[in-house]
């Protein structure tokens, strides 16, 4: 089934790209195969302007208020938040582990930087995920070409700046092939 592509409304501020919000929650005791992952992930909606973004975001639960094993995903419209998608196949992601209580602020700063095109890496950004877990939370940003070191370095430096992370924060880059 073909979905309608989001378009900016009259008087709204268009974004460089359209994006889609997704939500997933792990069902305890179930295997995490690709099929069940795809079944557990739900589209919240797509947007094409700053105002449309706020209409979704303002009604979403903040990551710090989520319980259990849940994730919010923000990906460019047309890219599924999974490694199997063509846009992600040769890609990788920066991962930042956060102590509890920081995820809401970091997630908001991260998505505002993505929507505002603060990363300056052309078409490279695919999307971002905030993963709420029991002990800590994880934020990640995915890009298309894991082997492009200039791009991954620029993403890392922009992340440090926009998230205002403590200097000792550990950032880890994982690439698709190593993981699967």
């Amino acid at each position: 089934t073909k979905r309608k592509v989001a378009v900016p409304g009259a008087g709204e501020h268009p974004l460089q790209y359209n994006y889609t919000f997704w939500y997933s929650r792990r069902t305890p005791g179930r295997p995490t195969s690709t099929q069940s992952y795809e079944q557990n992930i739900k589209q919240i909606g797509s947007f094409a302007s700053v105002e449309q973004f706020w209409r979704f975001y303002s009604h979403m639960i903040r990551p710090d208020d989520l319980t259990g094993h849940s994730d919010f995903h923000l990906f460019k419209e047309g890219i599924k938040p999974m490694w199997e998608d063509d846009a992600n196949k040769s890609g990788g992601k920066w991962i930042i582990r956060l102590r509890k209580g920081l995820a809401s602020r970091c997630w908001e700063n991260l998505i505002l930087a993505i929507l505002g095109e603060q990363f300056m890496v052309g078409e490279e950004i695919c999307g971002a995920v905030v993963s709420v877990r029991f002990q800590e939370d994880i934020i990640s940003i995915w890009n298309k070409t894991a082997s492009d070191q200039a791009t991954t370095a620029r993403i890392r430096d922009t992340l440090r700046r926009v998230l205002n992370l403590p200097p000792n924060t550990i950032m880890e880059y994982k690439n698709t092939h190593r993981q699967h």
Binding site: E12, R55, S58, L115, G116
Partner: peptide
């Protein structure tokens, strides 16, 4: 081509627009 760039401050200001509700 031209890129549409917004800083954080501008994006946060748009939140209070009637179009954002």
């Amino acid at each position: 081509g031209t890129r549409i760039i917004y800083d954080r401050k501008f994006l946060l200001e748009c939140r209070s627009s009637p179009l954002a509700r």
